[in-house]
């Protein structure tokens, strides 16, 4: 598609930014816990300088809206709000779990991905994705935050397990999945490259929002206890 789209993903220990121009993608990527705020705008700047683009020449900006690290998803949302308001751009919110699924599909050419991100507190962010056209994953059911023993496993089919949850709670999840899971990618991180691809797909379907609507999806919302 003839489109110029900037994408960022900062929901995990990885930080990345990608620029999609008419089917070609350039990406900056770093594994850098707690460095996202320092890294993300220099990454974006270097992508635009390389392409000789100003922010106002973009068509849209996409971000990984979570779930993931609370601070991480807020970093992406804050960056996107600032750039989108400043440059007058529409925003595309992409699920971080969908981006992880897209990464797994891209790397393995399989169809079904069970995404589990470590959500701490003995829980995972969980999503079941199946590839449709253009290797765009479609969510089956709903994304959830829950104990590994409570995730909604598919009844049958052939699946890949992707994300840090398959590392932290691997034995529990593998035991529950049985032979339905044929391969694990526990080290796979969500990347801006996949946010960009999914963002272009959503842009084509006009799934855009205003800058101020670019807010995180945390899934975990009971974060304070009354005295």
């Amino acid at each position: 598609m003839a489109i110029r789209l900037l994408a960022i993903e900062t929901a995990t220990a990885a930080c990345s930014a990608a620029l999609y121009i008419d089917g070609e993608i350039q990406e900056r990527h770093a594994f850098a816990p707690r460095q996202h705020a320092a890294l993300v705008l220099p990454m974006i700047e270097s992508l635009l300088v390389e392409a000789d683009l100003k922010p106002g020449q973009l068509d849209a900006i996409a971000f990984g809206r979570g779930p993931g690290s609370f601070t991480g998803v807020r970093i992406a949302a804050s960056v996107v709000q600032g750039i989108a308001l400043g440059a007058g751009l529409p925003v595309i919110a992409v699920s971080t779990l969908a981006a992880l699924a897209a990464g797994a599909i891209r790397e393995t050419e399989t169809q079904g991905v069970l995404v589990a991100l470590d959500a701490r507190m003995e829980e995972v962010y969980w999503g079941r994705y199946v590839a449709v056209t253009n290797r765009v994953p479609a969510l089956q059911g709903e994304e959830a935050v829950c104990k590994p023993e409570c995730v909604h496993m598919p009844a049958d089919g052939i699946w890949i397990g992707a994300g840090s949850g398959w590392d932290s709670y691997g034995s529990m999840l593998v035991e529950r999945a049985g032979e339905r899971v044929v391969r694990l990618l526990p080290d796979l991180e969500p990347r801006a490259l996949d946010i960009a691809n999914l963002g272009v797909d959503k842009f084509g379907r006009n799934e855009v929002i205003a800058p101020e609507a670019a807010v995180p999806v945390y899934l975990r919302d009971n974060v304070a206890r009354e005295p």
Binding site: A37, V40, L41, I44, E45, P55, G56, F70, T71, R74, I75, S78, V79, V80, Q81, G82, I83, L85, G86, A87
Partner: peptide, 18 residues
């Protein structure tokens, strides 16, 4: 730190895009 990051990143990126 979390509260500061919201204003700092939004403000920094707004300035950059302007």
């Amino acid at each position: 730190v979390g509260a500061l990051l919201v204003g700092a990143l939004t403000g920094r990126c707004l300035a950059w895009s302007w």
